[in-house]
């Protein structure tokens, strides 16, 4: 097997490990850090079920962002929805045989590739065109968009400009899953695409991509508005009461 295949196999094992372990540690940190006070942004749901519904709306529709800025919402939502479709489409490289549902989404996934690139371009344009957003943009904000756009670009290029041997790609990934690495087609575009994806997986737990798990742990969004009905006490705050006056 070519050195490149070995290298990519190792890279994906490492990237997966960093992504999974890194995220798990971060989530454990968030979950283990107490929220001592009730601070939902009100009006807020008064029940746990209501809170779950609020989070579903935030995750699926970007409700708060919609209220904030229509352009940012449009580009952001299109990008994320398209990315979800693209990821779904790519599942076919990891399962064999491909279920009917996955076969069905393939054409939508391809369209989504363009929508994803369009959304990213819109988000990036704001970083240059809106003075407020330009002011707050850091090099990593630009790099993150460049990385995602490059992933979309190399993917679309393989679909429309220089096709790659997708059957071999699939056997490479199935091989990874079976802990039995298979050769990867020797193709510069494919190498670029995969290296960029691995880079994204590697930076995920250390970057602002933590907004994904962060939302679920945001006290202003995930707390129920019931402070008069239930006493809410963090462990460190409860300890203050050991010396309390009656």
């Amino acid at each position: 097997m070519a050195a490149a295949s070995v290298l990519f196999a190792a890279l994906f094992y490492a990237a997966t490990a960093v992504l999974v372990v890194g995220l798990a540690l971060r989530i454990r940190l968030y979950a283990g850090t107490p929220a001592p006070l009730k601070i939902p942004t009100t009006p807020a749901p008064v029940t746990r079920g209501g809170v779950a519904w609020r989070l579903v709306r935030e995750v699926a529709l970007f409700e708060s962002l919609f209220k904030a800025s229509l352009w940012t919402w449009l580009f952001g939502w299109v990008f994320h929805a398209a990315l979800a479709l693209v990821l779904l489409r790519h599942l076919r490289y990891f399962v064999d045989p491909v279920p009917a549902f996955l076969a069905f989404v393939q054409p939508f996934g391809i369209l989504a590739g363009f929508a994803m690139a369009g959304g990213l371009a819109g988000l990036w344009a704001r970083r240059f065109l809106v003075d407020r957003v330009r002011y707050i943009s850091t090099p990593s904000d630009h790099l993150m968009l460049a990385l995602l756009l490059a992933i979309a670009g190399t993917g679309l290029a393989m679909k429309y400009l220089a096709g790659t041997d997708v059957v071999a790609v699939k056997s490479f990934f199935l091989g990874l899953l079976a802990l039995d690495p298979q050769p990867l087609p020797s193709d510069a575009l494919l190498y670029a695409h995969l290296a960029l994806v691995a880079a994204l997986m590697l930076v995920f737990p250390f970057s602002k991509l933590l907004h994904a798990p962060g939302l679920f742990f945001s006290p202003s969004r995930n707390q129920a508005d019931d402070p008069r009905e239930r006493r809410h006490l963090a462990p460190w705050a409860a300890r203050l009461e050991s010396d309390r006056k009656p």
Partner: peptide
Amino acid sequence: RVYLDACVHCGA
């Protein structure tokens, strides 16, 4: 902790 991590500089 979460707020310092999660911001993506979207400008909303």
